[in-house]
């Protein structure tokens, strides 16, 4: 076999894998424009009625979307805040206790969500927070902490913590030090941490299934119920909306980054 054919073969395999990764996702787009009233590919023409039905108050897509957005934004803010406070504190003073707390913080990565869910159901029912925004928020914050913490800790890892000592000797008080010295250096880490926390909350399903019922329904939960007890193509429509929104964000980010890199190298 010549090097050329081998190369072609390799490319074919790579493309096959990429298609395998992506095609099943794309299938929701044709399904979402089906003219039938059940999940299927369009047969006698296309129809956008399922997109219209997403806003139908009876179906509850809009409130669940709003709930999820609310929970994800609040989770991103809180998890980033807590993780940043801990990461910065541990960075400034070293010792045995930061390592101990770090282990505790990362434990959601280790403990299977299903086991955590069992525990959380008991705790939340004791304090009557089952099926509420606050109950979901607490759980999502805990589950997002590891990601947020790892992202922020990574941005602190190559900073010299004597900067803090230097800033104090130059007359800066703690708030100034945080705002003018630490924050500008860890801003990318905070953004990454907030993004990861948002995503974690946005598509959390395992624990959420256990701690919510009909009162506070998140989007993943709504999708889950719709897939188990109906075959409404609205499901494909919401999936397509999410898919297109995600792609738009990713493409925009890649373009922006490309421009940033070009501006940087031109300098």
């Amino acid at each position: 076999m010549s090097a050329r054919t081998r190369n072609r073969l390799l490319m074919a395999v790579v493309w096959l894998f990429l298609l395998l990764l992506f095609l099943p996702v794309l299938v929701v787009i044709p399904v979402s424009v089906t003219d039938k009233s059940y999940l299927s590919l369009p047969a006698d023409g296309i129809s956008f009625e399922h997109y219209g039905s997403l806003t139908d108050p009876a179906k509850g897509w809009v409130p669940s979307f709003r709930n999820s957005a609310l929970a994800a934004i609040a989770t991103a803010i809180m998890a980033t805040g807590i993780a940043a406070a801990f990461a910065v504190g541990a960075w400034i003073r070293s010792g045995w206790w930061p390592s101990a707390v770090r282990l505790l913080m990362l434990s959601p990565l280790i403990v299977p969500p299903i086991i955590y869910a069992v525990g959380m159901v008991r705790v939340l029912s004791k304090v009557s927070m089952l099926d509420t925004f606050w109950g979901v928020l607490v759980v999502h914050v805990v589950l997002s902490l590891p990601m947020a913490f790892l992202a922020i800790a990574a941005s602190l890892a190559n900073l010299d913590n004597r900067m803090v000592t230097a800033a104090r000797s130059l007359g800066a008080r703690p708030i100034t030090i945080f705002g003018r010295v630490i924050l500008p250096n860890i801003a990318p880490g905070l953004a990454a941490g907030a993004f990861l926390a948002f995503i974690t909350s946005w598509d959390e399903i395992t624990v959420t299934l256990f701690i919510t019922a009909r009162h506070f329904v998140t989007l993943p939960r709504r999708i889950y119920t719709s897939i188990t007890d109906s075959i409404d193509p609205a499901l494909a429509a919401i999936a397509a909306v999410l898919l297109i929104a995600t792609m738009a964000v990713l493409i925009a980010q890649t373009l922006l980054k490309g421009r940033g890199a070009r501006a940087g190298s031109a300098k």
Partner: peptide, 14 residues
């Protein structure tokens, strides 16, 4: 330290 008005130069500059 922030009220002492002592300048400090570190080994690694910080």
């Amino acid at each position: 330290p922030e009220d002492r008005d002592f300048g400090f130069v570190f080994q690694g500059y910080a």
